[in-house]
């Protein structure tokens, strides 16, 4: 089962994504954390998410890049948070980001095939004008492409608005 959860900043998408994992009843819960901590603000964000997850039985696995090389236990419930960080780490990597799009997509497909449930959290970033520098625009296009490709494969797709899940594909929960 593959579920894509999107939404804007502060929309409540993470909390909803976590609830999908806990509601699945699967006991082996893996949290694939993609954010690289490099300043006080990112440390605060990570801490906020850690507290939100506390007591929900997740094992946190750092995965800022290289999802396609990551092995997950068969049948586990996996929460990937989030696609835009993973894609940024691949795209803006010091090695040049060549082939990053295909690596991310292959990683999602492999984890989804092995896990019992994969919930991918992504971001809606393309609804606020597109007046950005070429590198950011290319990254945005890549993210939109990944969102489309994963949504096409997903069993369910949700957009979270003000904490309310709007079902775009699959059964409404």
């Amino acid at each position: 089962m593959l579920i894509l959860v999107s939404g804007g900043s502060g929309s409540g998408k993470s909390e909803f994504a976590e609830s999908l994992v806990t509601a699945s009843g699967r006991k082996n819960r893996i949290y694939l954390a993609t954010m690289r901590v490099w300043d006080a603000e990112s440390a605060r964000r990570v801490e906020r998410h850690r507290q939100m997850r506390a007591g929900k039985g997740f094992a946190t696995v750092e995965c800022p890049a290289g999802l396609e090389r990551r092995d997950v236990p068969e049948g586990a419930a996996v929460l990937l948070e989030d696609l835009s960080n993973l894609w940024a780490n691949e795209y803006f990597s010091p090695e040049g980001g060549e082939g990053g799009f295909d690596r991310v997509l292959a990683g999602v497909e492999q984890v989804a095939a092995r896990a019992g449930l994969l919930v991918v959290v992504t971001n809606e970033l393309c609804s606020d004008g597109m007046d950005y520098d070429p590198a950011t625009l290319a990254w945005l296009e890549g993210l939109a492409g990944l969102n489309r490709a994963i949504a096409a494969k997903a069993d369910q797709v949700y957009e979270v608005v003000c904490g309310i899940p709007v079902a775009w594909k699959g059964e409404r929960v």
Binding site: G8, S9, G10, S11, T136
Partner: peptide, 25 residues
Amino acid sequence: EVGCGVVPVDPAQRAWREAVGRLCC
């Protein structure tokens, strides 16, 4: 709705978007 764009470079703008989103939730 103010959270559906690229996360701004300016920390105050980021904090504002986040606060508006949480308020709406």
